[in-house]
Design a protein around this nucleic acid. Sequence first.
DNA 1: GTTATCATGAGATACATT
DNA 2: AATGTATCTCATGATAAC
Length: 471
Amino acid sequence: MDDTDSSDSWDFQDEDGPCFSSNGSNSVIPSRGASMCGAEGSTSNQSRSKAISHFTEMGFSEDLVIKTVDEKGEENTEAILETLLAYTAPEECASQGEPVLSHSSSPEFEWDSLDDLSDFSDAESCLQNEESVPETKMMQLVAMGFSIGEVSAAINSSDPDTSIADLMDFISAAQMAEPTSDHPRELPLEGRGPPDVKKKKLVKQEFHRGREIRAWRSKALPLSSRWWPSWDVRKQFNCLLTCYGSALETERIRKDLEGWQGDPPEHIQKRVLNKCRKWNFVWTAKNSVAPLLPEEVELMLGYPRNHTRGGATSQAERYKSLGNSFQVNTVAFHLSVLKNRYPNGISVLSLFSGIGGAEIALHQLGIPLRFVVAVEISEVSRNIFRGWWENTDQKGILIDNINDVTMLTANKIEKLVDYSGGFDLVIGGSPCNNLTGSNRWHRDGLDGKQSVLFYDYCRVLNTVKRLVREN
DNA sequence: GTTATCATGAGATACATT
DNA sequence: AATGTATCTCATGATAAC
């Protein structure tokens, strides 16, 4: 059962990730910071050299690191990093003729640009140690923020022993040519470039930021960046829900904020901020907020732009189908181990398939969809998925006329297994309507009307397993 | 250690408006 | 008939206050 989804605050989960982490945006080098705090006094020399090697490993020159560490004190990792970047960034801009921190376009909204560099040295050692395993290479590059399509293309068109650095080179070159319609970029990562250490850091940084508001403010939401008030301290979006804030709500906020000289009083700020949190509002003009557009939600969740446009009859349906869906990049990350196992295509039984998050993830990984059974109760979602299937010229077989999981009897499963030659993957996230805190009315747990389908997932999975064993 | 407070959520329903 | 809005409601974990 894959429960990777959009239910938590929109933050990449790192438990299974090999070399990146989503430590909170405020924490700077938490593990190292802690060990340094504990190393006061007698062992300060040790912590000093530790700090120095930490920053030199990041690619900064040793002289500069020693100077800065002595200047700022080895415990002030944040300040050190800030200073180091301040020293090195202008040089790189000059030599490469392009902005290094391309997202920091408006000075008044300069966010701390350092917090996510913390685990980079771990990623670096990861790169050096495990270059021999292709899946790992794929995961590492995806973890750095390259799109799965780009990484697949690069790995497919190079020798198996090509280094990560060369692969990055390859991808960068391809990006400069133009993004293909087949593999559009999931996130706008303008900070990419030649694979020097600095760039790798930035790419990694961008990857984390893709999940945070700050990235959106200057890239996907340039207007928002301009009007974002300093007292709106949100750094992450809340859970992407199936419903959205009303126009009247945003109107009330506008009225609340009008007529103050400078910042509004604290109680107003608090009220507005609570509303913004509740509805994931973003700033669109002076004193004005608005819900995220469906296109923006699609982008965040890793779907192709306008993925939900055709099949969904209304805006409400678009939000609903997106709010109930997988985060594609996350699913692709977990499924990337299948890439080399199914070069000739995969046979998938997709339960609660919705708008096709699992299938899109496989497609973006470059795994051909040889045979897909998509079981989905919502006609709107089925239409969206079929639209995608046709738009991407899928060559495999799609069976999407079984709408209800409870109708998927052992008999039918057996026929499907015979027809397809067996399923390689059973995937799906069963409904959580009766589990979620949002539902005050029928929060009946797994035995609730919708969530009870969890048991059908188990039933189907066990049937498929049994058939596989028998064959 | 215990209690109080706060924030939050793959939401549901009735009613109003278009 | 379809869409938009207001109102409903609460377990849970984190943190603050006692």
